[in-house]
Design a protein around this nucleic acid. Sequence first.
RNA 1: GUGGUCGUAGCUCAGCUGGUUAGAGCGCCAGAUUGUGGCUCUGGAGGUCGCCGGUUCGAAUCCGGUCUUCCACCCCA
Length: 458
Amino acid sequence: MNQPLSIPKGTRDFTPEQVSKRQYIFDTLKRIFSLYGFAPIETPAMEQLSTLLGKYGEEGDKLLFKVLNSGDFIKDISNNDWNEGNSHKLSLKICEKGLRYDLTVPFARYVVMHRNEIVFPFKRYQIQPVWRADRPQKGRYREFYQCDVDIIGTNSLIAETELLLIINNVFDALQLKYITLLNNRKILQGLAERCSLNEHFVAFTTILDKLDKIGIDAVMIELALLPVEQNILNELKNFLQQFLSLSSNSQKIQIAKSFINNEIGLKGLEELDFLVNHAKQLNIEHNIKFDILLARGLSYYTGTILEVKSSETAMGSICGGGRYDNLTGIFGLPDVSGVGMSFGADRIYDIMETLNRFPENLTQPTDVFIANFLPNIENQLIEITQQLRKNQIRADLFYDNTVKLKKQLTIAHQKKIPWVLIVGEDELQQGKYQLKNMNTGEQFLLSLTDIIEKIKKS
RNA sequence: GUGGUCGUAGCUCAGCUGGUUAGAGCGCCAGAUUGUGGCUCUGGAGGUCGCCGGUUCGAAUCCGGUCUUCCACCCCA
């Protein structure tokens, strides 16, 4: 009977208390998203595998959860396929669907499918779970929620600016300190071009991204393995050291301009300059840091990229995003530029939990507990309870009248319900009931109208 | 995906190099208090020592596998 039960690796159950805390985060995000003019959509948990494959780079493809075809999926497989022993290739023949890996690619698919009914620029938010077959760690789950905001159908950098404002609003509301790392894919491309490493863009940026972990010397050693001239590497090293010693965003942009000095790089730096200047005007620049090393793996980004980290804990990024000029192009709708970002609700939850930042009274869903310890008065108790509910008082009627009042009070206490209504024979005769305040222990004999008023006032 | 790590009561953990009936604190239940919770006191229940297998006269303890947790890579929210 006592079989060991379990849930899959990297997934979690949520208790009522956890759910109300998570809901608090979702509600905050929704409120702020709609404040900026975003409307919600939802998409299915599963997408066609063809929609998902190839959008997240080689690594991403490996992390997709595939959904086995229904019916007799074996009959279409040749002996060759079996004997080859290539499980990846085989999986593609028996799986047509996959669980979504993020919300951005499904959104691009949505935009293309609904292009005729969408009014551009289209601003949508979406809060739904995604699945990744990653190896779990703290703050890294196989099922987790993403909370996306995207603006599609505009090149305007005001869109990016508004994203920065949203970040500021959200983390202010949640009372978390944060830092937004800002970069631009064009700057990275310009940097690669400056080093004549256009051909090795991905490798180049991945190595750069490791700098704060392994140090500049180790980065130089790894870069030296690429086909690059040593004197260019030396120049790069000089530039990076100088860059890293600066703290002012404008100064960083200045020296980056003089070092990179090619068309694409300067374009990226101009875009970044625009954002930094606006941030300065909007008084949020102190939370923004130009980080020329920030790469972000997702291959669809083409312009601005950003990543938000908590400045109070060592959790990974809690929000990330950027501009993608041609994501819908893959699905047959070219020339639609979008920019968006994703908040990681689960990581935000973990941080708020360790820093104790949730408001106090989130987990108190019931206002009054109605004790029930006399025979044959349930009709009257149900009637009283309904009256309370009609007045928007959240009321919990106890069902089993054989349970001692003492025990019922313990239950109310454990459920953290602030009021208990005690209805005995004397009270019924008078038409007045005992209302007990569970925090102070005070007790009042009141009519139902007064009870309603008292609970509402508290 | 690679390399490590953890798993003992509802929770947090103890259990020395293998040796009788596996412990503590908190929580839970009952009573002291037959219509009054929290504090106190008294008593009580609760464990296939993650799971499967092996070594041994004997395994929570040693070994192998497996699942899970956490960590470092990788990548990311």
